[in-house]
Amino acid sequence: MGSQTAAQIPTSFGHELRACLRCRLVKTYDQFRESGCENCPFFKMDEDHERVVDCTTPNFTGLISVMDPTRSWAARWLRIARYVPGCYTLAVSEALPEDLQNLCEDEHIPYAPPKRI
């Protein structure tokens, strides 16, 4: 594992599991509400609980635990190599709501909407 501190690891695997719509980090709803997203602190999910619902989705496919993002081919392929180690999803099907996309733009944070196949 790299020198980075890892994100929280999901504590349960039921329907409360959610994925961040920008970085695809997977945690439980409660974890997002309490400490936000490690990669996207500007969403301030821990301050505004409504944000958790807006910024995350329970609809995602596949799970990948990335131990060493900088040296993992899978992380590079999925374009999550720059994020902290943690559990991510392979894909989310929804895009970030428009107002939050604008927020990203204002903060100069790159956002790539999911590709439709």
Binding site: M1, A6, I9, P10, F13, G62, L63, I64, S65, V66, M67, D68, R71, S72, W73, A74, A75, P85, G86, C87, L90
Partner: peptide
């Protein structure tokens, strides 16, 4: 997720990069 936790606990000893 358990392997992720193990990687966090063990540090760089665990030489796997990711689990899918």
């Amino acid at each position: 997720a358990c392997l992720m936790q193990k990687a966090i606990d063990n540090g760089p000893e665990l030489q796997i990069r990711s689990v899918v």
